[in-house]
Design a protein around this nucleic acid. Structure first.
Length: 744
DNA sequence: GGAACAATCCCA
DNA sequence: GGGATTGTTCCG
C-alpha cells in the first residue's frame, strides 16, 4: 500500500428514475478536471448506462464497491446552487426523486434522444447550431498586394468589425478562397458562434411606450415598487376586473425591476393562446425577451434556455414549465391568471407552477405578483390571513360598464335553447353582430340511457357515464378515452333504444343549425381544435367577421379577445357545478365571470343570457352580480361546514412553513385515505363479490396504473406516491390536491 | 424504470 | 412439475 495515495474523488449523482436516493460514483483521473456539480454525467446503473446529474462532491466512505462515471456530458454547469436548492424543495414536496425534478427542469432536447442501444451518449450539443464569424486580426500586411476582392474584404472587416459568413457571401458572392488566404496571412481570424433560433423570426411589432396609469393602477404600482427595493420576498395578489389594465401594471413593474439590475419572470396559462400578451411585452421591451412554451420545437426551446442561462435576456415569459427557467437575480415573478388550472402539470412530476412561483420567489427574495380577475379562494384566504398583500383594480380602464345579465330558469323547459335566447340570437344576427354560446361540455349527449331498463352507459374503467359523440359515432369516456360504437344497444337488457340525455356543444350546434339555418356557426372545443393551427383558424374566422355564432367550451374563455361580440349565451350554467370536486363552485364562479367578460364591444356593454336549472345558486348569482367578495364569503362558509380545506397545503406553506411540514400534512391525509379506500374496497367486495378484474388496469391515453395497494408492505411515503396517480375516488383527488378537470 | 429473483397460479 | 404470470427487491 502506498502511503500517500491521493484519496479518490467521489461524487453524488441523482438518477432520473423513481428512486428516492442519490448514488455515489468514483471519478476516474481522466475526468477529474471536467467533473463539477451541475453537469450531467453518464453512469453505469445496474446493467444499463444512464444520464445522471452530478449534485456535489462527496466524502470518502467505503469506496471499494463504487463504480466509476463513464463520461461528463457538459462543458458548463447547467444549474446553480440556488436552483439546486429549489429542485430539492420541489422533490421533497411533490415526493418525486430529485433526478426526475432536474430532468423536468432542464429543457427537452438537452438529453440524448435515445441512450438505449447505442453506447454513444449525445451531450445535447448536437442541437446547438453554430455559424462562422470572421474578424479582423492584427497580422502584418504581405509584401505582395492582395487581390481586389481580398482587399475589399479586409477593408470592410477592419472598419466595421465582425461579419458572418452568410453576410459576406451576400455582399461579395463566393469569397472563401480570399478569406482562406487572409487567414493564412493572419489578417483575419475565424470564430464560431452559437446561433439561437428565433421563435419570432417573421414577426415584427411596433414599439410602444408606457401608458398613463389611472389612480388604481398607480396605487398598485407604487405599493409594488416600494417593496421591490427591499429585495425581500413580497407576495401580492393583484385582483383586477376584466379589462382593468393588469398588464400595464405588470409591464411597468417589470421595467422598474430591470432598472434595478434584476430580472423578471412571467408565467401565463398557455402561452400559445395568449399571443397578445407576448406581443405587448415585445412592443415594450424589444428583443430582450425569451419565451418558453409547448409550441416551440425542442431546438428552439433549448436555444431560449441557453440565452437565459448565459444572461443574454432578463425577461422570460412562459407557460408553467418556465418556473424552472435558469434566470438569475430574479426581482419579480408575475403569475397572470393565477386561478387558471393549466398551471398544474398533470403527468410526470405533478407540480403547480402558481404555487412554485411563491416558493421560488421566497428563495430568491423576489416580488411575486399573482394577477387575476377571479382569484383562487386559496389566494383570497391568504390575503385574509395577512400572508399575501392585496392590490385591487376595481374599474375597467375605459370605464366600460359590466354586461347586463338576464337569467332564464330552465326548470321544466324542453330543449336546450330557450325562446328568449333564440330571440336574442336572431336580433343580434339581424343587426350584423356576433354571438357566443358557452357550454362547458363537449359531445352530443352527456350520456345514453336505456329506455327499457333505465340503465346508463358507463365506462368499465372509470365509473362515469360515457359521453355520446354523434360525429364520431361513438360513446366516449372523457376520463380514459375508452370508446364503444354508439348508439348501439343496452348492455343490460339488449334493448336497441337508448335515450340521449344531457346536451353538449355538438348538440347545441346541431340544434342551432336547424333553428337558424342562415347563420354562420362555428364550434370550438377540444374535438374541433385537434389539428395544429385549427385553433387560430377558428379565431380568425370569428375576428374577420366571417362567422356569426361561436359555440364553445371553456376554451373560449382563455386568452383571446373577441372584439365584436355583443351577445353571450350560457347554456346550462351549472354544468360544472356538480363535478365530484370540492372546488366545483369556485370553478363555476370563475368560469362564468370569465365568460361574461367576453360580452361587449368597444365602449358598449354587451348582454348575457344565462340559462340554468337553478340560477339562484350562490356561485351563479354572485357571478351575475359581479360580487367577488360575496362569493368568497359564502364559499368559505360552505367549505368550513363541509370540512374541506380552504386552501392547498403548498400554497399555505410557501408563504410560511417548511417542506417537511407539508409532507407531514400530506402523510396524514394519506393515512386517512388509506382507511377510506380499504373501507370502500371492503364494501365493494361485500356488495359485488371479489373484483373480477385485476386491481390495476392499463388503458387509454393515460396508460397509468389505477392501483390500490395494501399498506402492510410499504410505508406511508411510498403509498402517497402510488396514490398520486390514483384517479378513482374523489376523496383521493381532494386530499392530493388533484381535481378531475386536470385529467380530462 | 427495469433486470433479476421469488412467489404464485394454472393446467395436466 | 414446469411454464407463465405476478410481485418484490435493488441498483453506487
Amino acid at each position: 500500500m502506498a502511503m500517500h495515495q491521493t484519496p479518490p474523488t467521489i461524487v453524488e449523482v441523482a438518477i432520473p428514475l423513481p428512486l428516492d436516493k442519490s448514488f455515489h460514483y468514483l471519478v476516474p483521473p481522466s475526468l477529474l478536471e471536467q467533473a463539477q456539480p451541475g453537469k450531467r454525467v453518464l453512469v453505469p446503473f445496474g446493467s444499463r448506462k444512464l444520464t445522471g446529474y452530478l449534485l456535489a462532491f462527496a466524502q470518502t466512505e467505503d469506496c471499494t464497491r463504487l463504480k466509476e462515471i463513464i463520461d461528463v456530458l457538459d462543458s458548463d454547469p447547467l444549474w446553480t446552487d440556488g436552483e439546486l436548492e429549489f429542485f430539492r424543495w420541489v422533490a421533497c414536496y411533490y415526493l418525486s426523486p430529485l433526478g426526475e425534478v432536474i430532468k423536468t427542469a432542464l429543457p427537452a432536447g438537452i438529453n440524448p434522444r435515445s441512450a438505449k442501444g447505442s453506447d454513444q451518449a449525445v451531450a445535447g450539443g448536437s442541437r446547438i447550431r453554430r455559424e462562422a464569424l470572421y474578424l479582423p486580426a492584427d497580422g502584418a500586411m504581405p509584401d505582395r498586394a492582395l487581390g481586389a476582392k481580398a482587399a475589399q474584404l479586409l477593408e470592410l472587416l477592419s472598419t466595421e468589425g465582425e461579419f458572418t459568413a452568410t453576410e459576406l457571401r451576400k455582399r461579395f458572392g463566393s469569397c472563401s478562397p480570399q478569406l482562406k488566404r487572409l487567414m493564412e496571412l493572419g489578417l483575419v481570424r475565424r470564430e464560431e458562434r452559437e446561433l439561437f433560433r428565433d421563435p419570432f423570426r417573421d414577426e415584427t411589432v411596433q414599439p410602444d411606450r408606457p401608458r398613463q396609469l389611472n389612480q388604481h393602477q398607480q396605487a398598485a404600482l407604487d405599493s409594488l415598487l416600494s417593496r421591490l427595493d427591499s429585495r425581500e420576498f413580497s407576495p401580492f395578489l393583484l385582483h383586477g376586473v376584466t379589462g382593468s389594465g393588469k398588464t400595464e401594471v405588470y409591464l411597468q413593474a417589470i421595467s422598474h425591476t430591470l432598472a434595478l439590475g434584476m430580472s423578471a419572470l412571467t408565467l401565463v396559462p398557455e402561452i400559445s393562446l395568449t399571443p397578445q400578451l407576448v406581443r405587448r411585452f415585445r412592443a415594450r421591451f424589444g428583443d430582450g425577451i425569451a419565451i418558453l412554451h409547448s409550441g416551440l420545437s425542442d431546438g428552439e426551446r433549448y436555444d431560449e434556455w441557453r440565452r437565459i442561462r448565459r444572461g443574454l435576456v432578463r425577461i422570460v415569459i412562459g407557460a408553467r414549465s418556465a418556473i424552472f427557467a435558469p434566470l438569475e437575480r430574479i426581482g419579480i415573478i408575475v403569475v397572470d391568471e393565477e386561478h387558471d388550472s393549466s398551471f398544474k402539470q398533470s403527468d410526470g412530476l405533478r407540480y403547480n407552477a402558481r404555487d412554485l412561483a411563491l416558493v421560488r420567489g421566497r428563495m430568491e427574495g423576489a416580488l411575486v405578483l399573482l394577477g387575476s380577475a377571479t382569484p383562487l379562494i386559496t389566494s383570497q384566504y391568504a390575503v385574509e390571513q395577512g400572508r399575501l398583500g392585496l392590490l385591487t383594480l376595481p374599474e375597467r380602464v375605459r370605464g366600460i360598464p359590466m354586461p347586463t345579465v338576464e337569467t332564464v330558469a330552465m326548470q321544466g323547459v324542453k330543449g336546450t335553447i330557450s325562446a328568449r335566447l333564440l330571440q336574442a340570437l336572431e336580433e343580434t344576427l339581424a343587426s350584423g353582430e356576433q354571438s357566443i354560446i358557452f357550454l362547458n361540455r363537449r359531445g352530443f349527449a352527456t350520456f345514453l340511457v336505456c329506455s327499457e331498463c333505465g340503465q346508463p352507459l358507463t365506462c368499465p374503467n372509470c365509473s362515469v357515464t360515457l359521453t355520446f359523440h354523434r360525429g364520431r359515432g361513438q360513446s366516449v369516456c372523457h376520463y380514459c378515452d375508452f370508446a364503444i360504437p354508439a348508439p348501439g344497444i343496452c348492455p343490460g337488457c339488449g334493448c336497441p333504444e337508448l335515450k340521449e340525455l344531457g346536451a353538449g356543444t355538438e348538440r347545441v350546434e346541431h340544434e342551432l343549425r336547424e333553428l337558424l339555418p342562415h347563420a354562420r356557426i362555428l364550434r370550438m372545443d377540444s374535438d374541433t381544435t385537434t389539428g395544429r393551427g385549427s385553433h387560430d383558424r377558428l379565431l380568425r374566422r370569428m375576428n374577420d367577421g366571417s362567422a356569426d355564432i361561436l359555440i364553445g367550451t371553456q376554451m373560449i374563455t382563455k386568452g383571446h379577445d373577441f372584439p365584436s361580440v355583443t351577445l353571450v349565451g350560457v347554456i346550462n350554467a351549472e354544468a360544472s357545478l356538480h363535478m365530484p370536486d370540492f372546488r366545483s363552485s369556485e370553478r363555476t364562479f370563475q368560469l362564468l365571470c370569465q365568460v361574461f367578460g367576453r360580452a361587449g364591444r368597444g365602449d358598449t356593454p354587451g348582454r348575457v343570457i344565462l340559462q340554468a336549472l337553478d340560477p339562484g345558486h350562490y356561485a351563479i348569482q354572485c357571478a351575475i352580480d359581479h360580487d367577488s367578495a360575496g362569493f368568497y364569503r359564502q364559499e368559505l362558509e360552505f367549505r368550513r361546514e363541509a370540512g374541506y380545506p380552504p386552501f392547498s397545503f403548498l400554497a399555505s406553506l410557501a408563504l410560511s412553513g417548511t417542506c417537511e411540514e407539508a409532507v407531514e400534512q400530506r402523510a396524514e391525509a394519506a393515512a386517512r385515505l388509506l382507511l377510506n379506500i380499504k373501507r370502500e374496497q371492503k364494501l365493494r367486495t361485500e356488495l359485488l363479490g371479489p373484483a373480477p378484474a385485476p386491481l390495476y388496469r392499463l388503458r387509454g391515453r393515460f396508460r397509468r396504473r389505477i392501483l390500490i395497494k395494501s399498506a402492510s408492505r410499504s410505508e406511508l411515503r411510498r403509498l402517497i406516491v402510488a396514490w398520486r396517480d390514483q384517479r378513482d375516488s374523489s376523496s383521493v383527488r381532494e386530499a392530493m390536491d388533484i381535481d378531475p378537470l386536470d385529467m380530462s
